[in-house]
Design a protein around this nucleic acid. Structure first.
Lengths: 144, 144
DNA sequence: TGCAAATAAGTTGTGCGCAAACTATTTGCG
DNA sequence: CGCAAATAGTTTGCGCACAACTTATTTGCA
């Protein structure tokens, strides 16, 4: 017997994430960023001057996904990509002045959006922990 | 002060969903389905012979996303699309024999995957309810 | 009744997300 | 030391996800 879609964890997670990205869009438009681009900027605000590989690990995105995102951010003048002198296979990604400055304006967008959702901080924190647990478990299962 | 990405609900939700779709891929490959295609089949197993519009509402996907997905499922012989005689703007989507038969094999894939995650049913149910709540709240905020 | 507004579905263009394949370095081991 | 294996990043191809726009049909109201 098939169940209603929303009775299914996987589907609710999937559709909630789509709704989230959709809700972010108008907020991010003001900064000319997409949500994945915002994720990359966020990662760099926390830790700057990293290799693409390190950025991939932090964002859980594939390097083949990241390369074009990072190129677009470079085209917008938010970061630079320089070959590492120590290891010429690596590219070091560094925020520009403009990229650093963006943090002041844009870093609090998540808080803005979450406030608008009118969910309590406790429930959002529960959601964060459960998502984190699922991601970790699935990564474990994948490795084996 | 920028925080670590995984301290952020939005990001953990986003990366957990990517991990979920990634984990589904090898399971769904056996049935020649993508995860969004599986969602559409799931919806039809629950309620067959619906318009594209109704399918869009059930899956929370845009009609412009759904049209190509449904066309691919039609090409695989899993469903048909017929113009409604009552309202010629509508297309009625109906499972074929083959599409109905697929349910027996594929309907339990979610359970299979979730079992592999080794999260308790209680925590998965919490995650479902919180995702549902967020999706609902964001949809509300969007409408206003 | 006529016709503007609403509705259903499809098209186009852009940006992911990722598997698979490729190029260019570096590593490490026989 | 030499060279196969590993590693870092890019390219290609496909399928979403969705905004903006288009086409075709139906609705509703002046």
């Amino acid at each position: 017997m098939a169940q209603n879609l929303s009775d299914n964890v996987c589907f609710t997670l999937y559709s909630a994430t789509n709704a989230l990205v959709r809700a972010f869009r108008p907020l991010l438009d003001a900064y000319d960023l997409t949500y994945p681009q915002y994720i990359v900027m966020h990662s760099l605000w926390y830790k700057n001057q990293v290799s693409l590989k390190a950025l991939a690990q932090d964002t859980y995105l594939d390097s083949s996904t990241l390369t074009p995102i990072v190129k677009r951010l470079e085209a917008k003048g938010l970061l630079t990509r320089k070959i590492s002198p120590e290891d010429e296979r690596k590219k070091i990604i560094s925020l520009t002045e403009k990229g650093v400055r963006l943090q002041q304006d844009a870093a609090e967008l998540t808080a803005t959006l979450m406030a608008r959702s009118s969910m309590s901080l406790e429930r959002l924190e529960q959601l964060r922990l459960l998502s984190l647990e699922l991601r970790t478990e699935l990564a474990k299962a994948e490795a084996s």
